Computed example of a mutant assay.
Amino acid sequence: MGDAGPFPTSNHVIASYVAYPVLEGIAKRYCHEYIHENGTVKEGKSIHTYDPVVRAGEQVNNIGWILSHIENVAGSPELKEEMRQMRIQVADFYSCGENQVYGTIAGYRNTWLHGEEVAIAEYGTLMNYISLLLWAMMFEK
């Protein structure tokens, strides 16, 4: 059953337009000492990802890289441990390696958004990361 008219009507399509931008915005806000809201790395800072190091003045708009940076650098000790534990469970859910989780999440963004694949349960994963980051932001202040 396809979408009718100019606006998406399928839940998974609507979720794809909401879940990733919300997660990305909250993750960038959590990393406000490292990243501007537009994704530019702040002067004197760098983002340590599972792939390249993103240096000051460069753009970081890959949600997987930002989540990796939070887990390994920017997060509080408690958040780092919660993210590590969640990553292990998500790896089991996706049947991928623990070190591939953030890349898997980032890789699905465009395929879901453009309807190449349909994600349903996966948005729960994104909502869990959103909730975890919001929870950490509330209690770390």
Rank of each mutant, 00 (worst) to 15 (best):
L132N: 03
M1L: 10
E78D: 12
H69D: 06
A119M: 08
N99V: 06
V54Y: 01
Y34F: 07
F139V: 07
E81M: 10
I120W: 05
T49V: 11
G115R: 13
S46V: 09
L132K: 04
Y20G: 04
K45R: 11
V13K: 15
S76L: 07
R84D: 08
K80M: 10
F139C: 05
Y34I: 06
Y20H: 02
Y30L: 01
W65D: 13
S95D: 07
Y94L: 09
G5V: 14
Q59T: 11
E122N: 14
D92P: 00
A119W: 02
A56L: 10
A119P: 05
R55T: 08
M137G: 07
I120Q: 11
H36D: 08
E81H: 09
H69C: 06
P6R: 05
A106K: 01
Y50I: 07
V60D: 00
E140T: 05
Q89A: 03
G124F: 10
I63T: 03
T49P: 14
E71V: 00
L126V: 08
W135I: 01
V13D: 15
N38R: 03
R84Y: 13
L23I: 05
Y34L: 10
G44F: 04
H12F: 06
S131M: 13
H12W: 12
E117M: 07
E58Q: 12
E122I: 10
Q85V: 10
I14E: 04
F93P: 00
H114Q: 12
V13A: 14
G97C: 09
Q100T: 13
T9I: 10
A119H: 09
Q85F: 13
P8T: 14
A19T: 01
V90S: 06
G64W: 03
W112L: 13
Y34S: 07
L133P: 00
T40Y: 00
V90N: 07
Y129Q: 02
C96S: 03
F139N: 14
C31D: 15
I88W: 07
E78P: 08
E116H: 05
N61V: 02
Y108E: 03
C96Q: 00
P6E: 06
